[in-house]
Amino acid sequence: MLPTSRQILFAISSICFALIAVALYLQHIEQMQPCPLCVIQRYMFLAVGVASLVSAISGKIREGTVLALMAALGGLYAVGKHLYVIANPGFSCGIDPMETFLNKIPTAEYLPWLFRADGLCAGATDSVLGLAIPQWSALWFVILSVLLVFVLVRKAR
């Protein structure tokens, strides 16, 4: 028996919040400082998680799933750029206007332990279980996008 759309959305939400917890562990325990693109990915994982959770709780499956999918696709774009930066060492997004802008957003000012960008994008090459952090992020955004599309297609029937 297949899980219901609400169960899938609760699972997606849990996965997103767990990924944020892993990011915080890597930042605060392993001293891996997030770069601007990492922080954007955090925002996207949170958006997917919150939209999925609200959708599952409220019963507005289609609306919440579409919002979550848009955030997941935004995350895929951000991680795609991040992987491009890593693959092209001369290209950087380090200390630049994007970092300054991100660090001035109220969430970064009030929750710097979660949203402050202090690292260099090109430096995110440390591997965890064989993949760099941006590669893991890309994998999870793909998985979440596929699950969200499944919920949308399934609900449309």
Rank of each mutant, 00 (worst) to 15 (best):
F91S: 13
S58M: 03
L76T: 03
L114W: 06
A87Q: 13
F115C: 05
V66Y: 09
L83A: 02
Y84L: 12
F91Y: 15
F91D: 15
L114M: 10
I95S: 11
L102S: 03
F91C: 07
A108M: 07
V79Y: 09
E109T: 15
Y110N: 09
L67D: 05
S58F: 02
A68T: 04
L83P: 01
R62C: 05
F101C: 02
K60P: 00
E63S: 13
R62V: 15
C93P: 00
P97G: 03
G59L: 04
R116V: 07
P89A: 13
F91I: 15
L73F: 11
P112M: 11
L114T: 13
K60L: 06
S92M: 12
L67I: 05
K60E: 07
I57L: 14
G64A: 09
I61G: 05
N103T: 04
E63R: 13
M98A: 12
T65Q: 07
P112I: 10
A56E: 12
A78Y: 03
P112V: 05
M70D: 04
K104F: 00
F101A: 12
A56Q: 07
E99K: 09
Y84D: 14
H82T: 03
L73W: 12
V79H: 08
I105E: 09
T65E: 11
F115S: 09
A68W: 03
S55Q: 07
A72P: 02
I86T: 04
A72W: 02
H82V: 02
H82D: 10
D96E: 12
A87W: 09
I61T: 14
M98G: 00
F101T: 09
G94P: 00
G64P: 03
G94Y: 08
T100Y: 10
E109S: 11
G75R: 05
E99I: 00
V85M: 14
V85D: 09
T107D: 05
H82L: 12
S58N: 10
T65P: 01
L76G: 12
P112E: 07
L69S: 04
F115A: 06
I105R: 04
W113T: 11
S92D: 14
F115Q: 04
L102E: 06
H82E: 14
T65F: 07
L73D: 05
G80Q: 13
L69F: 05
A108Q: 04
L67Q: 12
N88I: 08
M98K: 00
E109I: 15
V54G: 10
E63T: 13
A87N: 12
V54S: 07
D96P: 00
A78W: 03
P97H: 06
G64W: 10
Y77H: 06
P89T: 11
P89F: 07
P97N: 06
P97E: 08
L73V: 15
G80C: 07
A56D: 13
K81M: 14
T65H: 03
L67P: 00
L67S: 13
A56Y: 08
I95Q: 09
A72L: 00
G94H: 14
L73I: 15
Y84M: 11
I105W: 08
A71W: 07
A108F: 08
G75D: 02
I86G: 02
A56G: 14
E63K: 14
M98H: 01
K104V: 00
W113R: 05
N103R: 05
R116K: 15
S92G: 08
V79D: 06
G80I: 07
I95G: 06
P89M: 11
L76Y: 00
E109W: 10
A56T: 07
Y84N: 11
I86A: 08
